[in-house]
Amino acid sequence: MSITLHGTGDRRSHLELGRRGEDLAAAFLRESGLVVLSRNWRCREGELDIVATDRTTLIVCEVKTCSGTGFGEPAEAVTQEKMARIRRITGHWLSAFHLGWCPIRFDVIAVDYPPDGAPSLRHIPGAF
């Protein structure tokens, strides 16, 4: 089965593109020495794409994937409202896993997955 990842506006294509970007981001984090604790963790307020740790800091990663920059860079899609929601959801994650205070860093991973080329990834540590 083949899924087109661009140009159709098809929801399944969009979800597949996002999943591929998150897979690439998780692999990148692991190769960078981080331990991925959760992927696509959900609560009533929303979802955290990736929660990882370097064994001293909890790292919450928002992954944005696109197949081109016609609508701007992927990282530009992380608005102030989205940042505030991710912070609130992180509080729910900490409660769910019974963790007290710990250092937390919020990163953005922007993945460009062009239709006719190799994907590229840009990691922005401490993005917000």
Rank of each mutant, 00 (worst) to 15 (best):
F71W: 08
E22S: 07
H98M: 05
G72Q: 10
G72H: 08
K64E: 07
N40D: 08
P115H: 06
I86A: 14
T4G: 15
G33C: 10
D116F: 06
R12Q: 15
I104D: 00
W41G: 01
V111I: 11
D54L: 05
G117W: 11
E16C: 13
H14C: 06
G33A: 09
A118W: 07
R122T: 13
W101A: 14
P115Y: 00
L34N: 05
T65K: 10
H92C: 10
C66F: 03
H14T: 15
S13M: 13
D49H: 09
C43W: 00
E22G: 11
C102N: 02
T56C: 01
P114F: 04
L99P: 02
D54V: 05
R39H: 02
S13D: 15
A77P: 06
V51E: 01
T69Q: 10
E16Y: 10
Q80G: 11
V63K: 00
G126C: 05
R88Q: 12
E22K: 06
V78Q: 02
G68L: 05
F97A: 07
A52E: 00
G21L: 08
T4P: 04
E47R: 04
P103A: 02
P74M: 11
E73G: 10
R20K: 15
T90F: 14
S32W: 09
A26Y: 01
N40K: 04
V51C: 08
T56K: 05
G18N: 04
S67G: 01
H92E: 14
A75S: 15
R39D: 00
R11I: 15
P74G: 04
L37A: 09
H92A: 09
E45C: 02
R30T: 14
R30D: 01
T8V: 12
L24T: 09
L121C: 07
S67L: 02
E62W: 00
R105T: 04
V60M: 11
D23Q: 15
T4W: 09
S120V: 04
G72P: 11
P74W: 08
N40L: 03
E16I: 12
V35A: 14
V111D: 02
A52H: 04
R39C: 03
E22N: 09
F28M: 07
D107N: 08
L37S: 06
E22V: 08
A26F: 07
G117N: 04
F71G: 10
R19P: 05
C66H: 05
T4A: 15
S32R: 13
S2G: 12
G46C: 03
Y113T: 03
E62Y: 05
V51Y: 01
G70C: 07
S95N: 13
D112I: 03
V108C: 13
T57I: 07
